[in-house]
Write a protein that binds this DNA or RNA. Structure first.
Lengths: 142, 142
DNA sequence: TAAAAGCCTATAGGTTTACTAGACTATTAA
DNA sequence: TTAATAGTCTAGTAAACCTATAGGCTTTTA
């Protein structure tokens, strides 16, 4: 399951991507529109800024803005920043791999082989879906 | 990510399914062979028993045994018992649905639509994979 | 009847989640 | 120049969840 942090992050970015203008968007505006605790959203947007997805402007007329084009930001990348691994087990994670301590042989562990299959099918979707796609209300079926 | 509980549960059941005979298997045997804390495994196997997957026999010569045929137990069913929802968001879970509190309209929420897609592709794999399949060291590619 | 083996209750440290409070700093419009 | 605005940083926290561990109880069978 995704944490609320990740869900809120995706919602906030989608909200920003939907805006026509590139003017900075207020945290408080996003928080209100998307029903997210403002203080919690602060933490999330700050993390996205430190990860290179958002820029910010302080003072009056300030706010957060997208640095990259929505079509160049995959949902998988966002989930990895906000949530961490996408795989169901650390021993099959591509970006957050950890050795399986109890396993005798990871190469022949049928569970990890299965979880690789799940990982690949999930990634196939999430790597190819961008923030641009999320701005549309209805998604085209593959 | 799957919890260790789920991973251990799958490992233990796979171990049992691999046994030729239908004689009860000792918790301590599974714990030792699969490198799982015995006390933790007790809790897990008890839960699987209460869910109707395992039977048990007390006393000398006792242990746990599979009630159903390995080919009739899907991995998805086991994960739902041990872990809970398979979907990435409560609002797209088939078996553990919860309303999205912050969402204005779940029907047109692009994030939930995306997560439905992920859910379906994951379920396609997990529903069709059984304990029988896990007893093989190498899985056939779809 | 004693050993074996599962069953039950309780506990406990650690981590994560989902926030909240409050002060600080930078920016800009008036 | 200053007041208002808006992001930034530090801290803390209650509750839930995870991953066990301890110890005694009950049932069964050799």
């Amino acid at each position: 399951m995704l944490s609320k942090k990740t869900k809120y992050g995706l919602k906030a970015l989608t909200y920003m991507a939907r805006k026509e203008s590139k003017n900075p968007v207020l945290i408080s505006e996003i928080a209100e529109e998307e029903n997210i605790s403002k203080k919690f959203l602060e933490i999330i947007l700050l993390q996205l800024k430190n990860s290179g997805f958002l820029g910010s402007k302080k003072g009056k007329g300030g706010g957060y803005y997208l640095i990259r084009e929505p079509k160049d930001i995959s949902v998988a990348a966002l989930i990895r920043i906000l949530e961490g691994p996408i795989a169901m087990l650390p021993c099959v994670s591509l970006n957050f791999y950890e050795k399986c301590e109890d396993c005798k042989d990871e190469q022949t562990c049928s569970i990890s082989i299965l979880m690789m299959e799940v990982r690949d099918s999930t990634l196939k979707i999430l790597e190819n879906k961008t923030l641009q796609d999320l701005t549309n209300t209805t998604l085209p079926h593959l």
